[in-house]
Design a protein around this nucleic acid. Structure first.
Lengths: 245, 245
DNA sequence: GCCAGACTGTCAACGGTTTGACACTTATCG
DNA sequence: CGATAAGTGTCAAACCGTTGACAGTCTGGC
């Protein structure tokens, strides 16, 4: 909307965030600068609802700071959480299918900031820099791959297996997106038992039992509002030998 | 591989199949003709394994005739089925992420035929006809949407709810892909209790109970190796009032 | 630094699904 | 057309996660 000049500090900040987003890394830098000029920074506070399930308007959102919960609430109040996004991650896949309602909503998990590129502007940009399409398709297809893996886990694994897989998955995403810790260092998530329960479709109490089991194997640690995966590699190995239901 | 002439009858048949595929409908007809020339028809017999989970080689497969089960088998022999594809449907999403292993395999559900475009050829074609990209992204993003809906159902709904939703989903896909019956006519699937069990991560016996429940409500009918949804609209309404777990 | 509200651990009773087993029915194909 | 394999209905027992309830613990914000 605003005709920001490239040297506008606001635009410069947007650019930095967009550069860190894997979805956009197929675009040449000049295109990113254009995107940054039309992007809008949107600061948020913890627990603020960013998008509701069912909304039709579409934008490409890139997490600039903080973390965002992707979840949807059913009519009877139960909440189902899909994943947690950290800086560098993107969401708003409906930019690719204009007119489709969002299946899941987004809620601020901490204070932070989003950088948003309007849907039409993003699509126009892709059309003008078509060399970015293959990378874009690749990113989308990987996301589909992840979703399908989750479906597979739901069908094949018991509760400890599912919880372990999901934590492992989050840990890998954390590493990939931005949290470039040491190769296999410990990762901690600020997730309550209830958040985890909402990811797995189980109850707070059920999660408690599962976490205790995994803790007993030395695979995770947990405390008030926190879960830690000390050794991703060990967790991965454990889960490999345990596909049973 | 073979330098088929456009008027080659084999190529003409391929073309007809490719024209019926929604993923490819963004490509101009001349591009489809090129694709048909390099495509390979691959007839199959019921229960033949078309692709195994984990394979890396990629091609875009379009179902020309018959139906194909998308599923994966775990190390301990349990099978999990994702969906059933009918003529007009496409799979092999790894064409968009060359080098990624297939998460799920494909098995012939009946006799039929696949038309396959080699991955590299398909990607080249897109690059030469970039106007097809938006449609391609749209199709991929809709598939992601479907996968996420399944995850949502797994978390929010009880067994009757999940089974109902999946059957409804299959029925809608059937209508969309090619089976252009009347607007809301009955749809029958050749699925055994065990197939359904494998889709939902439950047991043959468990499915039996659920189907009986749904039959009691007049929402489905079933017999040896078959399940029928007589009225999609009624099933949809029933499920809407029943999101509970 | 303190306190309200959020989060947690634990328990017994309940319920839906699985397990395992067996007899029965229906298709397929030689 | 008949035999063999694949699919089905049903049952009791065991299992695992849920429900509901309550007391205890942590923590962030004023």
């Amino acid at each position: 909307m605003s005709e920001d000049h490239p040297s506008d500090p606001r635009s410069a900040h947007n650019l930095e965030v967009l550069r860190g987003c894997s979805l956009l890394s197929g675009l040449p830098d000049e295109a990113l600068r254009e995107a940054a000029a039309v992007a809008r920074a949107r600061p948020f506070h913890a627990n603020e609802v960013l998008y509701a399930r069912g909304e039709v308007q579409s934008a490409l959102s890139v997490v600039g700071a903080g973390s965002v919960r992707i979840s949807s609430t059913s009519s009877d109040g139960r909440e189902i959480m899909l994943t947690l996004f950290e800086p560098g991650a993107w969401f708003g896949d409906t930019v690719f299918s204009p007119g489709m309602p969002r299946v899941f909503g987004a809620t601020a998990h901490s204070d932070g900031e989003l950088v948003e590129v309007p849907g039409q502007a993003y699509r126009d940009l892709l059309a003008r820099y078509p060399q970015a399409y293959p990378r874009t398709l690749d990113m989308l297809s990987r996301r589909l791959w992840s979703a399908i893996s989750i479906i597979e886990d739901n069908g094949l694994r018991d509760m400890p297996g599912r919880v372990g897989r999901r934590l492992l998955f989050l840990a890998q995403m954390h590493e990939h997106d931005g949290g470039a810790d040491e190769a296999n260092g410990p990762v901690t998530f600020k997730l309550t038992r209830e958040h985890i329960a909402n990811m797995m479709g189980m109850t707070r109490q059920g999660v408690h039992g599962v976490l205790k089991t995994l803790e007993g194997e030395g695979l995770i640690a947990f405390s008030y509002g926190r879960v830690t995966v000390p050794d991703r590699e060990a967790l991965r190995r454990y889960l490999e030998e345990r596909p049973q239901k």
